[in-house]
Design a protein around this nucleic acid. Structure first.
Length: 307
DNA sequence: AAGACGAAAGTGGTTGA
DNA sequence: TCAACAACTTTCGTCTT
């Protein structure tokens, strides 16, 4: 939910920020850091195959900042205008090669068409923001271009790409939700997710428990006060390293549960557990730690007495 | 009767030899 | 490739409200 543009460089603090609209890149002129305002590069245009008409529209391929994909797929084998420059037997070769090229390209295009439809369906099912959807589409394209779909179902790669895009934009969905929306088993999604992020060298920061709070809180109809209280709790928890190594959803759920107690909007462990997709036991364990390490027992007591 | 609590055994994934 | 390991789940019995 930080849709406002970056104003200064987080690294050196310089205000001298340069935006390149075409490439979607935002860089700091002071230190050269790429700030990646929106992460998606819409500058590339990947359709130059299906029109055979003229010599224009030959752009293809990713910008140089992306890892190059030279699997032979991005290469275009001439257009008909080139054809006239060739003599005799070369013409045969020319057509043969281009036929090949055409087959490969249309196969990709077809695949892409189906995949993007699926992607759109899942995305709207999960009510994901447009930015995330577009990021996922781009990830999927890269995956196809790198031939990463081979041996995997198209749907699972779509789900993996979406999951990755969610994580990148800090609007995480759980693997369970993704599984429900896409009809793919969650461990399969997890597998492809790990695979494509590794192969495409997409770096993803470990997800932050507080990213889950708004969604869980609204599902439980908790007040904004309770919501911010739980974020506060999460921050404190992070400071004493209570969060590392644990599943982020469990911690988020526990924090919400505690906050709901403190603010007198009690929800049962079961209710919280259900929306967070964890069990009561996990909530209890995290809850116990939170109470103990953050001395929250008194706050909870206070609320009890008020009643 | 429902919710909270905790113990014990089981599961799937990560890690390090 | 395998075994140890931690986090999490499932299940179930007991206590509290």
């Amino acid at each position: 939910m930080r849709k406002n543009a970056i104003k200064e460089c987080p690294d050196c603090g310089s205000k001298d920020i340069h935006r390149n609209r075409d490439k979607g890149e935002v860089t700091c002129r002071e230190c050269g850091l790429v700030l990646e305002d929106r992460m998606i590069d819409f500058g590339q245009e990947w359709r130059s195959f299906d029109d055979d008409k003229g010599g224009d529209r030959r752009r293809t391929g990713a910008p140089s900042s992306q890892t190059s994909f030279d699997q032979g797929m991005g290469t275009e084998i001439g257009t008909t205008s080139d054809y006239y420059k060739l003599g005799g037997s070369n013409k045969d070769k020319f057509f043969r090669l281009r036929k090949w090229q055409y087959r490969i390209s249309t196969a990709i295009e077809r695949n892409l068409k189906v995949a993007l439809a699926e992607l759109k369906r899942v995305s709207s099912y999960l009510k994901l923001p447009k930015q995330v959807e577009e990021e996922a589409a781009r990830i999927y394209r890269l995956a196809v271009q790198k031939g990463l779909v081979r041996g995997r179902s198209m749907e699972s790669v779509v789900a993996g790409a979406l999951y990755a895009a969610c994580r990148r934009h800090e609007v995480p969905r759980t693997l369970d939700e993704m599984g429900e929306a896409s009809g793919i088993e969650k461990k399969e999604i997890g597998r492809t997710y790990r695979f494509i992020t590794r192969e495409l060298e997409i770096s993803i920061r470990p997800s932050n428990p507080s990213d889950y709070i708004p969604r869980f809180a609204s599902a439980l109809k908790l007040s904004p006060e309770t919501q911010s209280k739980s974020v506060e709790i999460l921050e404190q928890a992070r400071d004493i390293e209570l969060t590392s190594g644990r599943g982020p959803t469990g911690i988020a759920a526990a924090a919400l549960y505690v906050a709901s107690l403190i603010h007198g909007e009690k929800r049962t462990q079961r209710e919280v557990a259900d929306v967070a997709g964890v069990t009561e036991v996990t909530i209890r364990n995290r809850y116990k730690e939170l109470i103990k390490r953050l001395n929250l027992a008194k706050d909870v007591e206070k609320m009890k007495n008020k009643k």
